[in-house]
Design a protein around this nucleic acid. Structure first.
Lengths: 107, 107
DNA sequence: TTAATATGCAACTATATGGTTGCAAATATA
DNA sequence: TATATTTGCAACCATATAGTTGCATATTAA
C-alpha cells in the first residue's frame, strides 16, 4: 500500500479524474453516476472506475439511494497536498537565484 | 501530450521522485547523479530516470560539468499545483456540512 | 407482470510506469 | 598510456492504469 499523500496525488494526477471531481464540486449537489457520466465522453464504467479511485482517497463520497448512487465531492483530502506543498513555498521564488548563478558557470 | 499541470502532478505523485526532489531541495547545492543515487536503494539508472522525469517538468535543472551532471531542484513548477489547489480551498472546510446533512438521509 | 433504468462485476486490451541489467562512451586520474 | 569514474543508451520485465465491452442484478415505472 502507498501512503495517503501518494494516493491523493495519484488520484488528482489524472486529468479526467480532476474533471469529474471539479464537476462534482461546482455542481454543489449530489449526482448519480449515470448523470455524471453523461457529461463525459468515456463510458459509464470508465467514469465509475474513476469515481471509485476518488472515493478510495476520500475526494468523493457515495450514498446509495434506491437504485441510484449519489456522489458528492469532498475537498478535504486536498489539505494534505497543500501541507506538502507548503514546505516548498519558500523555495519556489528564491531558489532560482542560486540556480541562475550556478548556470552562469561559476564553481 | 498532457497539459503541464498533469505532468507536474504525475511527477510528484511518485514517492521516490518526491524523495529525490526533497533531497535536492534541502541539499541547497547542486549534486551529481551518482552522489544522489548513493542516497537511494534503487539503481543509478532508476534514479536517472526519475531525474529525467523531474527535469522534463522543470522541477530539476541539470548542468553538465566535465563527466558529471549536476542537478539542482527548482520548486517553481509547484506554483501551478498551488494555483490548482487554491480553487478548492474554499470547499475543503465548508463542503462537509452539506455532505453530513446529505448522509443524514434527508432529500 | 413486464419493461426500462441504474448499477456492479468481470474479463479483456493497450499503454504507461518503475525498475532492472549490460554495454559503450566520455572524462579524469595514476 | 592504462585504469577508474560518471554517465547515457537500449533492451527488457513486471505491474499498474485507463479504458472498453458484455452480462447479470436490483430497483422503479408502465
Amino acid at each position: 500500500m502507498q501512503d495517503r499523500i501518494t494516493q491523493v496525488l495519484k488520484a488528482i494526477a489524472d486529468p479526467t479524474r480532476r474533471e469529474i471531481f471539479h464537476a462534482l464540486v461546482v455542481a454543489a449537489t449530489a449526482m448519480p453516476i449515470t448523470q455524471i457520466s453523461g457529461q463525459f465522453q468515456i463510458s459509464r464504467q470508465g467514469v465509475t472506475k474513476h469515481l471509485k479511485t476518488l472515493e478510495d482517497v476520500g475526494l468523493v463520497h457515495i450514498n446509495t439511494q434506491g437504485r441510484e448512487r449519489f456522489c458528492v465531492a469532498d475537498a478535504k483530502p486536498l489539505k494534505e497536498v497543500n501541507s506538502w506543498l507548503k514546505f516548498y513555498e519558500d523555495f519556489w521564488d528564491s531558489a532560482l537565484d542560486d540556480l541562475d548563478s550556478y548556470l552562469d558557470g561559476s564553481s
